[in-house]
Design a binder for these strands. Structure first.
Lengths: 362, 362
DNA sequence: CTGAAAGCGCTTACAG
DNA sequence: CTGAAAGCGCTTACAG
């Protein structure tokens, strides 16, 4: 009275196994395995019998058990700063597609930029014996991965390189991109150009700032220290920074933003400053005018940049391409490729839309 | 010469197992298991010996093997339309956080709105014996999940209900939200209000369109069929729809957009129409003016809505809250809760920002 | 406190 | 073509 229904014996416990199917069909377990895996050499009538039992019992192979025996798990793990951030979710989606093409499933986890959490999530993936790891690192020391790599786990870093270990990495051309963005502003006639971006302790922040300085130097332009603001972008800091840059002894006429968040917060603040200027003191009015006419180029493209007023000129990265390449590197390694650690550097693309083509205010 | 190094014996194969640790430490395998799992009742010196061996061999427990024995996998699967879409990635991130709190890992997969792919990804998760599934359904028939549910897999649907099976579901108040959005436009004096959204064959598209009709009926307003456009939003269709609505015998003065993409495409098109009007025929100019003054309310909030010109009034859902609640339902079920299928309906929130408060053009 | 045996659900390697 | 045995790396249940 329990073999003819697809419901399991008791509350949730005990799904049918190959053993159950074998008993039901009156064959050996191995025969069931052959049918399930489409292995050749099973008599047609026997195969039919097994398939019928599978159907009746509602059997579905337990891949976890299979993979334990096989040694592979057909899964990879992706660790990034925040799955909820459009940059990373685009990257994740692309990685997912490559994984699927290779019959792999994708675990995703967020580190919130905390090294400890990166490590915790990564090791949890390793405990499940993922075949590969794609890591957007938060930490600076990845030696904890050495045993994993030694055991054959394929590891690829994205957006920032690994710390203290050799590993494949997919990067954007941070320095070159920033240089091009700032050079673009210079070519529009700007000489007083500010920089607002991440702290130099962050890999990308460091390189983009360098790009800014290089471009200024190439243009023969000095940098006033009141023009530079480097910290994790949040609204209060950005506001203070902008007011400082726009009202100092040598107010900037253009600004380069080091990342996505910095750009968006800047846009919000500029609009606020411009609005606050109406019907106020002449100092406010001057600040408002400066805010309203500031030229702007941002690192990272973002949705709706083209619908801003004016549309925002950006130096675009391609997160999907980064995710795709990283995943492809994983599967190339898993397929046996043994060359030295690869370093892929993706070109950035300057997209002029309006905000970066404004002339300097007289 | 192979026991003192943390490198495995041969190329990638063979990580140290509990058996290896036991041999190395000269204890029984079970003792190693006790130490690894912090079970009580191990003599301190023995525990130390085992820990030393673990360290030296670089042992890390294989959770897959453990979970095979335990019957749980401490993982859940999330299937949605597109992990790369901000709406879904916000949902995914929230689900990830809840999973982490419960010691679970998260598999993510995209269906691209294809029923077959939804099924394929979902069943792949089931083959790994995930403990639970969070599904944003693409298909309309989920009976294929019956064996899984019978076997104890917790299943929760999000954004749209399950098809042909009973299951927990977390929904937004689609109809009420749309009704409120349209009523808001009516309260601003609009009488000719268009609707641009998904086809009625889509669950949310159907309900939002109903909300639109209800609000119009409540306001005693008739709907001209030239005001309604229902299809998957893409730029060409949206453009044709808008030109039609703005130039017909009874041009609309306001528009309600049924979702995120519709809103964004509309904004893009309106700007284009307004720009094209300058220095053209008088017909173009009239169209441009109508486009430039159109009042707009959109279903779904989106980043930078506040920076549009004018800022966009929306009926906001809360994807993170949806993901959080869905994951919580999963773990409540896994904890033994056996009540009937829950249906959670989340309120939407009207956020006036400017575009929805414009008066009708005379 | 410690351990030898059986088993989770499959596949691998080997007989018939 | 079919199957009985061993084993993947752990935990469970039971002895000492």
């Amino acid at each position: 009275m329990s073999e003819m229904t697809s419901q399991p014996d008791s509350a949730g416990r005990g799904r049918p196994t190959m053993k159950d199917v074998a008993a039901h069909a009156g064959v050996a377990l191995k025969t069931v395995s052959r049918v399930v895996n489409n292995e050749p050499g099973v008599a047609p009538d026997m195969a039919t019998r097994v398939r019928t039992s599978i159907e009746e019992l509602g059997f579905r192979r337990n891949d976890s058990a299979r993979l334990l025996r096989t040694g592979q798990t057909s899964s990879i793990g992706l660790i990034m700063e925040d799955l909820g951030d459009p940059f990373y979710s685009a990257l994740a989606r692309a990685a997912e597609d490559v994984a699927r093409q290779h019959g792999s499933l994708l675990f995703t986890g967020s580190s919130d930029e905390q090294p400890e959490r990166e490590r915790e999530v990564t090791l949890a993936f390793c405990a499940r014996r993922v075949d590969g790891l794609i890591i957007v690192p938060a930490g600076a020391d990845h030696r904890y991965l050495l045993p994993e790599i030694g055991a054959g786990v394929a590891v690829v870093f994205v957006d920032r390189p690994a710390g203290l270990i050799e590993a494949d990495v997919v990067l954007a051309d941070n320095q070159g991109g920033a240089r091009a963005g700032v050079a673009h502003l210079i070519s529009q006639g700007h000489a007083r150009i500010g920089y607002l971006g991440d702290s130099e302790s962050i890999y990308t922040g460091n390189l983009r700032y360098r790009g800014y300085r290089e471009a200024m130097a190439s243009g023969g332009l000095a940098i006033d220290r009141s023009w530079v603001w480097q910290a994790a972008p949040e609204i209060t800091g950005v506001r203070r920074a902008l007011v400082g840059m726009l009202t100092g002894r040598a107010p900037v006429t253009a600004l380069f933003c080091g990342n996505n968040r910095a750009t968006v917060l800047t846009l919000r603040t500029l609009r606020e400053l411009a609005a606050a200027a109406r019907g106020r003191t002449s100092a406010d009015a001057a600040l408002g005018e400066a805010a309203a006419s500031l030229a702007l180029v941002g690192f990272d493209d973002f949705e709706l940049a083209d619908l801003m007023t004016p549309p925002v000129t950006v130096v675009a990265q391609n997160p999907a391409e980064m995710g795709r390449l990283a995943a492809q590197l994983i599967f190339r390694r898993l397929a046996g490729e043994t060359g030295p650690a690869a370093q892929i550097r993706l070109r950035t693309r300057l997209i002029p839309r309006g905000s970066g083509e404004r002339p300097p205010r007289p």
